[in-house]
């Protein structure tokens, strides 16, 4: 079932008898890419794992509403991005510490057993966290994942021009942040 074409996979997802197996293929195919997109936004593995699980559960429950107007991966990216942004805004609301959510995230990252970056990488993450969540998403997709603007346009629903501007502003902000921090 791994070699199914997109259309066949879509048909299998619509068929109650084959749905479960087809969804297993979808999970296997897309979980890694979605995980890294989420992880670079939430930073902690545990949070990324929770958001990824919610993403697939939402997709599973919403299978009947998926009409196949977009690619399965685009649809999953939409859900993952919405889940990630909701997670970040609810974490912000729940944050009762004196530190801002971003500062807490960097502090937790420094002691995270699943983070092996050096001081410079920690500084880069701090700079990335200074960006608004949506701009951070654009930066991560372009910088770390090297995605094409056209692909990002499809996923984020923002024009290529706006994405380019957003990315260049993000790069400038990050450079300024790092230089001003010293």
């Amino acid at each position: 079932m791994h070699k199914l074409r997109e259309e066949d996979l879509f048909d299998a997802l619509r068929d109650p008898k084959r749905r479960s197996e087809a969804f297993g293929v979808v999970v296997k195919t897309h979980s890694k890419q979605l995980y890294w997109l989420i992880r670079k936004m939430v930073l902690s593995h545990d949070d990324a794992n929770d958001v990824l699980q919610n993403t697939f559960l939402k997709a599973w429950r919403g299978l009947d509403n998926f009409r196949g107007d977009s690619k399965i991966s685009t649809w999953l990216h939409h859900i993952a991005i919405n889940e990630t942004l909701s997670f970040l805004s609810s974490s912000e609301a729940k944050n009762k510490s004196d530190l801002s959510l971003e500062d807490s995230m960097v502090q937790n990252l420094a002691s995270d057993e699943y983070f092996s970056g050096d001081e410079l990488q920690l500084k880069l993450q701090r700079a990335i966290l200074s960006l608004p969540p949506k701009q951070r998403l654009v930066f991560n997709m372009k910088y770390f994942e090297g995605r094409k603007y056209e692909e990002m346009e499809e996923i984020l629903g923002t024009s290529v021009g706006a994405l380019k501007a957003s990315y260049h502003h993000a790069v400038k902000k990050i450079k300024d942040f790092i230089l001003n921090e010293n």
Partner: peptide
């Protein structure tokens, strides 16, 4: 610091998974 964005780090090496 100025070159920090010059060489994109491999995120999968910085962030690990169990």
């Amino acid at each position: 610091n100025e070159d920090i964005l010059g060489n994109c780090p491999d995120a999968e090496k910085i962030f690990r998974v169990p």
